[in-house]
Computed example of a mutant assay.
Amino acid sequence: MDKPLLKKLFPGFEDALYEEMLQHGVLRYVKEGEPLLRVGQHIRSVILILEGVIKLYREDDDGNEFFIYHLNAGQACSLSLVCAYKQETSEVMARAVTNATLLTIPLELMDKWLSHYKSWYEFVITSYRNRFEELLKTIDAVAFSNMDERLEFYLRKQVAQFGPVLKLTHQDIAGDLNSSREVISRLLKKMEAKGLSGLTEIPLNG
Rank of each mutant, 00 (worst) to 15 (best):
D2H: 14
P4Y: 12
L5W: 06
L6F: 04
L6T: 01
K7S: 03
K8N: 09
F10Q: 00
P11D: 08
F13T: 00
A16V: 11
L17I: 11
Y18G: 01
Y18L: 06
E19C: 04
E20I: 04
Q23D: 09
L27R: 14
L27I: 14
Y29T: 14
V30W: 05
K31N: 10
E32A: 15
E32G: 11
G33T: 07
E34M: 10
E34V: 07
P35G: 06
P35M: 09
R38M: 09
Q41M: 15
I43H: 03
R44C: 10
L48E: 01
L50W: 06
V53H: 09
V53M: 05
K55G: 02
K55W: 06
L56W: 05
E59W: 00
E59I: 15
D60E: 08
D61K: 13
D61F: 10
N64M: 08
F66Y: 12
F67I: 04
I68T: 06
I68G: 02
H70Q: 02
H70N: 13
L71V: 06
N72W: 09
A73I: 06
A73Y: 04
A76E: 03
C77P: 02
S78G: 14
L79P: 01
L81M: 11
C83K: 09
C83W: 00
S90F: 02
E91M: 12
V92R: 07
A96Y: 02
A96Q: 04
N99R: 07
N99I: 05
L103Q: 03
T104G: 04
D111A: 10
D111T: 12
W113Q: 00
L114M: 12
Y117M: 05
W120D: 01
W120Y: 15
F123K: 03
F123P: 00
I125T: 13
S127R: 02
Y128T: 01
N130G: 04
N130Y: 01
N130K: 14
L135C: 07
K137H: 11
K137A: 12
K137E: 14
T138W: 09
A141Q: 04
A141N: 08
A141T: 05
F144K: 11
N146F: 12
M147F: 07
M147Y: 02
M147C: 00
Y154R: 08
Y154P: 00
R156A: 05
A160C: 05
Q161R: 14
L166P: 00
L166F: 06
L166W: 04
K167F: 08
L168C: 01
Q171I: 08
D172E: 06
G175H: 08
G175R: 08
S180Y: 05
E182N: 08
V183Y: 06
I184H: 01
I184P: 01
I184Y: 04
S185R: 13
L187M: 13
L188E: 01
K190P: 01
S197A: 14
L199Q: 05
L199I: 12
L199F: 03
T200N: 03
P203K: 10
L204T: 07
L204E: 08
N205T: 15
